[in-house]
Design a protein around this nucleic acid. Sequence first.
DNA 1: CAAGATAATGATAATCGTTCTCGCTCAATT
DNA 2: AATTGAGCGAGAACGATTATCATTATCTTG
Lengths: 137, 137
Amino acid sequence: MARPDHRRLILETLQKQEQPISAQALFAQLRQQGQTIGLATVYRILSHLRQEGLLCCHGQPEGEILYSLAEHHYHYLTCIRCRRMIRLPACPWQEWEKTLKFPEPFQVLYHELQLFGLCHLCQGLPKEVGGSKTPLQ
Amino acid sequence: MARPDHRRLILETLQKQEQPISAQALFAQLRQQGQTIGLATVYRILSHLRQEGLLCCHGQPEGEILYSLAEHHYHYLTCIRCRRMIRLPACPWQEWEKTLKFPEPFQVLYHELQLFGLCHLCQGLPKEVGGSKTPLQ
DNA sequence: CAAGATAATGATAATCGTTCTCGCTCAATT
DNA sequence: AATTGAGCGAGAACGATTATCATTATCTTG
């Protein structure tokens, strides 16, 4: 039996995502598509992609790590109520970098910017509505 | 036996840290000082402080969460080789915020900026020196 | 094409940080 | 002194991630 190209499979699946996705969710999604892939393989390939710089990883305050393709390199507004992640249209880092002064020489390889708050849908809502997950922080 | 004021204890210990510290490390440090405090209590109090907005939490790419006092509200250059975290002299967010355009109304409550790369001590070193931990990413 | 070497795979166990549970203690109140 | 309730520590439970290992596909070499 021919061995499926899991690496390509994962890259294509990441391509489709509108938001960063966790390794577990990625695994579940692939399995639901009928793919016979192991959880270990998902983590292995994500680790490879990460070392190649193809991946952005967003460490959430609860410990879970979300992945997205680095070619996008977007930043997100994360709603602490509904956990929706809203993509910023552009990365402001290039501009900001010029204005920053480092206390010592440092070679920045990549960066992570996360903005937390309330999206417009959740701003007007009373606290503790529905069975939503625990709010972040 | 008088009950020790763990909350104050943790606040004072956080005060002393030069870098953000994990809950586990905080627990170990307190125990080494001879304090009889449980791990659960450390997490409980950190959770309280977080909800009160007194704490900054920095989710690392590997999942561990580091804490620092919010009154400082510093950002850090994190060296992916030696894991040293170098504090930036000031938070550039106030200036940057003006230049950002959101795709939809959003109320930013707090933000997290992390810069990863190589510190000046690690820039010249060959790869894989010594028994250091696995590099980040 | 055969045979051995090599690398990738999936199931599962192990690890690690975090959260939950529960019986206990202390302190305030009556 | 008895009652109540909040805070506590030890350890179990949980979830995400990593390590292990036997198996299998692919590659190499003859």
